[in-house]
Amino acid sequence: MRRIIFFVAILLLVCCKNENVQQSLESEGIPIEKSISKIINKRDFPIKKFSKIELVSYYNRVVWDTIKYKGESASYKVVVDNYKFTFDSTMIQERVILNKSQEKELINLLISDTCIPQEMEAGCYNPRHMILFRDEKNRIIGYNEFCTSCIGSRNSSNLEGFQKYCYADMAELFRKFGIKLFVEYGDGNGAKEYNFFKSKGFN
């Protein structure tokens, strides 16, 4: 009995120590990677010569993006070609340029295969967020557009097949970096989006 009590006491001490270490690191500003699942693999990021990373948000692009590109509609078309958007960029609501520390945190999530088990992709696609990689001339050389509600994405060819992070983790990072436009059905923001579309003539 004494031996069992001894082992339980040791286990409690170890758990408390680990928790204190994590709290200490967080208090010092060192980010602790948190995910709904574990990292099983890390890969090299394929875009090597980007100058800056920009996060953008907009209301559901599929509703207002009426510009077809190379015969493809909003849901399926390439959204950046020849360094430029193939949609009306004036519809972008928020822009955030990341600092170097934020860039490292974002890249760390991008290169980590964190979603095990994988999030289930729905049959819809309502994109509201995009990551842009720009070169020294401010040209867009890579992008990752995604839909957190439908669990889907569109990527530039140099990022095709690369995305394996959890969308919930990326949404949390966007919020942390200052993006506020998120529409979760039932949270009241759906009405804001509807009124925005109505004001622009989209019913």
Score class of each variant (00 low, 15 high):
C15W: 00
V62Q: 01
C147W: 01
L159I: 05
Q163F: 08
N189D: 06
N60G: 08
K38C: 00
S37F: 03
I179F: 14
L109S: 12
N144D: 06
S24P: 00
K180D: 14
E72M: 15
R95M: 06
E184R: 08
L132S: 09
T90D: 12
F177G: 02
N99G: 02
I141W: 05
S37P: 00
M170V: 13
K70W: 13
K17G: 10
S157I: 00
G188P: 01
Q22K: 15
D44N: 04
E119S: 10
Y59C: 10
I97S: 09
E193Y: 11
M91W: 12
G186P: 06
R139W: 03
E105V: 06
K198E: 10
I36D: 03
N82T: 00
F7T: 13
Y167A: 05
N144G: 03
F146N: 01
L12I: 08
P127N: 06
R154C: 01
E136C: 14
P117C: 09
N82Y: 09
K200M: 14
S101R: 02
F7E: 10
D88C: 15
M91T: 12
C166V: 04
E72S: 14
E94M: 08
Y76N: 15
N60R: 03
K68V: 02
S199N: 13
K17Q: 10
Y194W: 13
V79F: 12
L55R: 04
S73I: 09
Q23H: 08
F133C: 09
L109T: 09
K200Y: 05
R3E: 11
A168D: 08
N189G: 05
I40N: 02
